[in-house]
């Protein structure tokens, strides 16, 4: 990544996580790690967001919420699964209420493993997601889609 063309806005949703990855995602936004230097802003509105960070596995109840948030986001969009639970269910895989990782519900582009995922790796994941976002955007343009 030499330079970024856009400032990606991220949205964070907590699936059935233990909170550990959530606070690490928030820690990324605060002075020590500071993802805002990449132009990344945290937003609470799915319609504003380009990158969706999901922590934790998916249970029967949050499944519909995750699907809904994903469908509300505008194209192009990228999903980052943060933490091992979001990747495949992790330590809670055997719980009867956990369906598995985020990819059981919505397509995932970047996997960030770790328990809890370290801020450095989350930032790395976000930077990778930005590349994928650019790629998707180019593809949309080629197809003559609605991208401007």
């Amino acid at each position: 990544m030499s330079k970024m063309k856009k400032s990606p806005w991220i949205m964070h949703y907590d699936g059935a996580s233990c909170n550990g990855c959530d606070i690490e995602v928030l820690a990324c936004l605060t002075p020590l790690y500071d993802v805002e230097r990449f132009g990344v802003i945290n937003t609470g509105n799915p319609k504003h967001a380009d990158i969706l960070l999901i922590t934790g596995g998916i249970n029967t109840q949050c499944e519909s919420v995750v699907k809904q948030i994903y469908s509300q986001m505008a194209e192009p969009k990228v999903v980052v699964a943060v933490g091992i639970c979001a990747c495949n269910g992790g330590v809670f895989k055997d719980c009867y209420n956990i369906k598995g990782g985020v990819d059981t519900t919505i397509p995932v582009d970047v996997y960030v493993p770790g328990c809890a995922a370290r801020p450095e790796s989350i930032i790395d994941g976000v930077v990778k997601a930005v590349d994928i976002l650019e790629e998707k955007y180019e593809n949309m343009k080629k197809k003559g889609g609605k991208a401007h």
Partner: peptide, 24 residues
């Protein structure tokens, strides 16, 4: 929304391994 029911995992993890579950 975050319900995992990890209290039920005691059926699958022995009491020493369960420590790592309950930490989470």
């Amino acid at each position: 929304y975050v319900h995992r029911r990890l209290e039920k995992l005691i059926d699958k993890r022995d009491f020493k391994d369960y420590l790592y579950v309950i930490e989470r």
